[in-house]
Design a protein around this nucleic acid. Structure first.
Length: 460
RNA sequence: GGCGCCUUGGCGGAGUGGCUACGCAGCGGCCUGCAAAGCCGUUUACACCGGUUCGACUCCGGCAGGCGCCUCCA
C-alpha cells in the first residue's frame, strides 16, 4: 500500500490519505438541465480513475458522484422548452448515465439523486434551524453565514467581499451573506416537496452536504472534489452548513480539478461555447477522450480543440500499435507473464504508480508508460506488454491492449498466403492488389521479419 | 477592485537548485519491393528585469501578459 498524497485546496498543502480508514470520495456531478459537455466529464474521469487507483493499492475507497436534479436551472430550462421539469431532469439524468457510461470507466460506487434524498436534506436543515445556524423566513430557510466562524476558510476570501449571487430583490434574508437551504414553492414551479416550512425544494448547496453524508457516513470523509469553479460559493457553503450541523468538518481534503477552456476562456453552458461529451465520443472515441483528459495535471486548466483531441487519438494509436505488433508474443504480449521483480518493466510499473500516488500526476505517469513502450519497441523487454497493460488499465485505457474482436476469417488468411506467394515471386503488383482486397475486408497487412500478419484496420 | 492560479522547445504538457520528461507535428536517416508500424538523429526550451547562490528554468522581489472565482456553472 503506497503512501498517497493529494493537494488540499483549503490548506494548499499535500496531505496524506489515511490508510486505516475507508477513503470516502464525494465529487460534485452535473446539474441535469441539458446534455453534459466535455468539461463535466473531467471530474467524472479524474475521480473515477482516482478511486480505481486507490482500490488497486489496497485502500478501501468508496466513490460517490451525485446528480443534481433539483435546481433553478432545471425549472427555467423546462419552462422554456414547455416540458415538465421532472421529465426534463429524468431525461437528462438518463443521458448523463449513457454519455459517461460510454467512457468505459464503469460507474461510481454511489450515484445519489437529489430527488432521492429529500428526507435527509430536510433533517439536516432541521438540525441547523434547531441549533440556531439557520432560520425560517416566509417559507424559505436560510443559513446564517455570520453565525459560522470560519466562513471563507476554503475559498480564502474575506466575508465582507462576498455575495451569494442569489436574487436579493424583496429578500427574506436577514443578511445579504446568507444563502438559502430551502426555497418555498413559487408560482410557475411545477415540482415541490412538503417540509416543516411548507411546500418547496432544497437549495443547491444543502443537497450535496446531505448526499455526501448519506453515502459516505460519519464526517469527515477523506476527499471532497469537483471543479474549481465550485470552490465558491458552493463548497464554501457546504463546509459551513455541514460543520455547523455536525460539529465536525465535512471532508479532510478538498480536491479541485481545473477548467476546460475554449479560446482561452472557460467552457460553460452559460457561455454557449460548449462541446458535448457525446459528440466528442462519437468523433474521437472513448480512449482518445480519456487520453485527452489525463494528458494534463488534473489541477491545471486544459485547452479544448480539435488539435488536442487529434493528438490524443495519435497517442492512443501509438499504444494500440504497440500491442498489435506484440500480439501473440509469448514473453512480451499484453497477456504475457507479469514483469519479474526488479526488472525494467517492473520498475517502470512502480514509477507509474508512484506518479499517481504523488497528487495523481497522470501526465508524469503516462510519460513512464510511453518511455517503456519506446524501449520495448527498440528491443525485447521481458514483461513489458503486461506492465503497460496494467498501467493503461489504471487510467481507464485498458481497452487499447485488447486483442480486439474476431480474428481474420479463412478468406482473409487465404489471401494473405496468396500475397506471400506473390511476394516470393516478386510479383509486387499482384501483392499490392491482394493487400487492397484485404483492406476492403477490414484487415491491414503488417510485414515484419517474422512474416506478414493481419491487424484490424482502425475504425473497424 | 478583492482572492487565487498560470507563462516551458513548432504545438500540447510534466518536472527539478547542477544530470534526456513524455506526446504530437516537421525535417533527415535506418529498415522495407512500396507502404504501414518501428527505431535513430534533429531545430540555443524554460515570458521579462533584478536579487540570493559556486551554480536558477527551479528560491526571493518586481514588471508584463493570460486565466479562474467573486453571478448559474465540472
Amino acid at each position: 500500500m503506497r503512501e498517497i498524497r493529494i493537494r488540499d485546496t483549503m490548506t494548499g498543502e499535500l496531505r496524506r490519505l489515511d490508510q486505516d480508514r475507508e477513503v470516502g470520495i464525494y465529487a460534485c456531478g452535473p446539474t441535469v438541465y441539458s446534455r453534459i459537455h466535455i468539461g463535466n466529464a473531467r471530474p467524472y474521469v479524474i475521480f473515477s480513475l482516482l478511486a480505481r487507483f486507490l482500490k488497486s493499492e489496497g485502500y478501501r475507497a468508496r466513490l460517490a458522484i451525485n446528480v443534481t436534479d433539483i435546481n433553478d436551472k432545471i425549472y427555467s430550462a423546462a419552462s422554456a422548452a414547455g416540458v415538465d421539469s421532472a421529465d426534463l431532469a429524468a431525461e437528462m439524468t438518463a443521458a448523463y448515465f449513457e454519455d459517461t457510461g460510454r467512457l468505459g470507466l464503469g460507474r461510481p460506487d454511489a450515484e445519489p439523486l437529489a430527488t432521492g434524498m429529500i428526507g435527509p436534506i430536510i433533517e439536516l436543515i432541521e438540525t441547523l434551524v434547531e441549533n440556531g445556524h439557520a432560520y425560517e423566513s416566509g417559507g424559505d430557510v436560510y443559513f446564517s453565514v455570520r453565525g459560522f466562524e470560519g466562513y471563507g476558510k476554503l475559498s480564502h476570501r474575506p466575508t465582507d467581499e462576498m455575495e451569494q449571487g442569489e436574487d436579493d430583490a424583496g429578500s427574506l434574508k436577514r443578511d445579504r451573506l446568507d444563502f438559502a437551504l430551502w426555497k418555498g414553492q413559487k408560482a410557475g414551479e411545477d415540482t415541490s416537496w412538503d417540509s416543516p416550512w411548507g411546500p418547496g425544494r432544497p437549495g443547491w448547496h444543502i443537497e450535496c452536504s446531505a448526499m455526501a453524508e448519506a453515502e459516505l457516513g460519519e464526517l469527515p470523509f477523506a476527499i471532497h472534489g469537483g471543479g474549481s469553479d465550485l470552490v465558491f460559493p458552493h463548497h464554501e457553503n457546504e463546509v459551513a452548513q455541514s460543520e455547523a450541523a455536525r460539529g465536525r468538518p465535512l471532508a479532510t481534503i478538498w480536491m479541485h480539478n481545473g477548467m476546460i477552456e475554449t479560446d482561452a476562456s472557460k467552457m460553460s453552458k452559460s457561455e454557449g461555447n460548449i462541446f458535448q461529451l457525446s459528440e466528442a465520443l462519437d468523433r474521437f472515441g472513448p480512449e482518445a477522450v480519456v487520453s485527452y483528459l489525463i494528458a494534463g495535471h488534473y489541477r491545471q486548466p486544459i485547452a479544448f480543440g480539435e488539435d488536442q483531441l487529434n493528438e490524443a487519438v495519435a497517442r492512443v494509436d501509438r499504444l494500440r500499435n504497440f500491442f498489435r505488433s506484440r500480439a501473440g508474443a509469448e514473453e512480451g504480449g499484453a497477456d504475457g507473464p507479469g514483469p519479474g521483480a526488479g526488472s525494467e518493466a517492473s520498475e517502470a510499473l512502480e514509477a507509474f504508480r508512484d506518479a499517481l500516488a504523488d497528487d495523481f500526476n497522470t501526465p508524469r505517469a503516462m510519460s513512464v508508460a510511453f518511455d517503456l513502450v519506446r524501449k520495448a519497441n527498440q528491443q525485447e523487454v521481458p514483461g513489458a506488454g503486461a506492465a503497460v497493460r496494467e498501467m493503461l488499465d489504471l487510467v481507464g485505457l485498458g481497452s487499447v491492449a485488447a486483442s480486439g474482436g474476431d480474428g481474420p476469417g479463412s478468406e482473409a488468411l487465404e489471401l494473405l498466403e496468396q500475397r506471400e506467394a506473390a511476394r516470393t515471386d516478386r510479383d509486387f503488383d499482384r501483392a499490392d492488389e491482394i493487400r487492397d482486397r484485404l483492406a476492403d475486408l477490414g484487415w491491414e497487412v503488417r510485414d515484419s521479419a517474422d512474416g506478414a500478419s493481419l491487424v484490424p484496420r482502425p475504425g473497424r
